[in-house]
Design a protein around this nucleic acid. Sequence first.
DNA 1: TATAATACCTACAAAATAAGTAGGAAATAG
DNA 2: CTATTTCCTACTTATTTTGTAGGTATTATA
Lengths: 133, 133
Amino acid sequence: MIVSTRGRYALRMMTGLAGHGGSVSLRELAEEEEVPFKYAEAIARVLVKAGFIESARGKNGGYRLVRPPEAYTLAEVLRETETSLSATDCTGRKEAECPRAATCPTLPVWRALDETVNEFLSRYTLLDLMPNR
Amino acid sequence: MIVSTRGRYALRMMTGLAGHGGSVSLRELAEEEEVPFKYAEAIARVLVKAGFIESARGKNGGYRLVRPPEAYTLAEVLRETETSLSATDCTGRKEAECPRAATCPTLPVWRALDETVNEFLSRYTLLDLMPNR
DNA sequence: TATAATACCTACAAAATAAGTAGGAAATAG
DNA sequence: CTATTTCCTACTTATTTTGTAGGTATTATA
């Protein structure tokens, strides 16, 4: 599977933020988007580190989207939130490990598949995931 | 990840069979292709059931490919050997479970991604995975 | 017909990954 | 000062994938 629960939660949280104009508390956002609060915290942290969202601490704090929703591709969001977006371990986490790599006739196919998926996911933005349009 | 160890083993086993002209014992094939023997047994069974390979029992028995290698697409082999070839659970194993499905704005994207991957994997055959060509 | 080699089958075990939780520390508006 | 909020570390649980054990059924051939 390419896109797991975690990545889909991330996308939901970001489109959720896009729906609100300004700052939203995670408590509220997680509730709205039906993402387990504590899991949402972990995901939010990643999104902040990636520079996708900004946070304000303390009372009346919360998160907000940095860019307009059409300026985030699914590819870039998922690259940060998924463990790996590669089609196989051969081109992902275990790329370095495989002793067959040098001569493997299948490896170029996986690379091309990765490229195909990446192009696909780069053609969609958060705006495409917003309801009512 | 789309293609796991299991699916890759299956492809290796089939190209291995294609390399030999006739019947090969699993012991030999598994050794050549560096697939754990007992795991190879399980995979072979699936390939037989799918009609991709044929078996002969008893002494001097073994497996052989039914069609010429160019007549198997990666898509059809992987559909039988991978748990799911879908991009997400939303379009795979848990498709029926999701209460959001009817209105989910993201679902069409996952369906289109599945289609893209399927088309890609349908453009390659076992012949493309054979060494020395 | 006995034997050795082989495919076939069921059930289990181990390893890896993904999903989710607990419990607090640090910051900030009011 | 207090309530609310983000931030952080560590842990637990669930699920999936990978692999193994131990045998039964079949068949060529000596």
